[in-house]
Write a protein that binds this DNA or RNA. Sequence first.
DNA 1: CATAAGCTATAGCAGATGTTATATTCTGTG
DNA 2: CACAGAATATAACATCTGCTATAGCTTATG
Lengths: 69, 69
Amino acid sequence: MGTKPFSEQVKAVRAALNLSQEELAHALGVSFATVNRWENGKTNPSKLAQVTFDNFCEKMRTQGRLGHV
Amino acid sequence: MGTKPFSEQVKAVRAALNLSQEELAHALGVSFATVNRWENGKTNPSKLAQVTFDNFCEKMRTQGRLGHV
DNA sequence: CATAAGCTATAGCAGATGTTATATTCTGTG
DNA sequence: CACAGAATATAACATCTGCTATAGCTTATG
């Protein structure tokens, strides 16, 4: 479950997909600054951002692009 | 394109789907307060919220649940 | 009418987001 | 090494979001 801090989840997902912060931001529909702040523990995701991130990960998994992060 | 104010778009979509503000909020993954503020012109959607709303509408259309609002 | 229940409107506050700008670090290439 | 370009880190500010509480507005039911 959500044991790891959100910052680690984002880093792990981004690394697994081999995306830059900018690219992940675009894929999620958020700004680069937002992804950067997440990874550096400056902010936690809003409810909407959390849902969006989860949906994105689920989508990547069903496409075989993301292991069990 | 986006001719109508966002507040009107939200009202129209919600009416077409026959949802309460609370129900639409849940469907989008935002809070009731957020949908309420959108409809009353108190705030405009964040980038993420705009993308999420657009995706939601598109999904509803492909499911035949939403005419061309 | 009176009451209840559900929906909607509004407000305040803490925290998150978007934009912009600047600085730093990494990476490859000559 | 030296340099350029990309990627990342950080900051400030306005705006948006989430939460909570309160009040008003239907609608139904007795």
